[in-house]
Amino acid sequence: MTEILSSAPGELALDPLAPANRRVRFRLLPKQKVSWRETGIAVLFLAPSLAVFITFFYLPFAKVVSWGTYRSVRGGTSYTYVGGQQYRDVLTGHEFRDGLLHSIQFVLLTVPLGLVLGVLLAVAAHRRLKGIKIFQTIFSSTLASSVAVSAVVFSVLLNPKVGVFKVDWENRQSVGHLLSLHPRPGAMVMAALPTIWQNLGLAFVIVLAGLQAVPDEVLEAATLDGYGPVRRLLRVTLPLISPVLLFLFVVLTVQAFQAFAQIEIVTAGGPSGSTETTVFKIFRLTQSNYGAASVMAVGLFGVTLLVTAVQFAVLNRRVHYGN
């Protein structure tokens, strides 16, 4: 947020001194002796969820990691063990790099726009008006429509030959050109539109819930302090819902990295592979080389983990988690 009050470290009175805060946070976690009895009880309570996670997440994931060390022979009829070699080959190869580039384009196109528009819609719809529930329902409805439906709707709307708007993305200096680094931006923008539209609903619902938790009195205090609507939003409302925003940012990013169906329906990866994201490449590879596909899946997991970790590391300090 705007650092209007930021002052040099020597100026004691107005410095938002972080250490004071930190000290308090540590005090909340007092040193405790490890009690075996309590640990046992904790494990017992965790057991059901652990069982589910191990069976359906950790074990399959370990399997995928190990499959990455086997190379397909004769189009997948048999497999031979090659160790880490296949990881080196696939992760440094141009297929993975291209897929990742497309995935990142997709993330950049869908996440910020969905987030910003969702916040604006939620702020617009967060007021006491007659019939506001109707608008809230409309705005959140994109969440309830399936990926396939929204993809088909947008294909019909924007198809260059038979669409309602007949947008010829290929031969046009469009916003897409500016947004994308890729020589064929139109297709990626097309593929992203249904997701932006769907993210809108998700962002709207979650941000609206966050806004409803912001106390009216704090906003009234800001009004009396002379804050206009924009300043109130930027300096009070958004910081107070920052945990919600971080959550949305992370979830939308992870989802965008995993997007498949909407792209498959709108562009089927084309033209000439220009919208083939990593998940696409993985899917195609599973037809011929399960080992290489597994490596790519692990690679995508690593990238997603890294991005999420960076998001948390950079933004968590600016997030206010309340009392």
Partner: peptide, 13 residues
């Protein structure tokens, strides 16, 4: 205000 309505994300200053 009754709840004081302080800005929880800002320092006292």
């Amino acid at each position: 205000f009754q709840s004081y309505a302080l800005y929880p994300h800002m320092t006292v200053a």
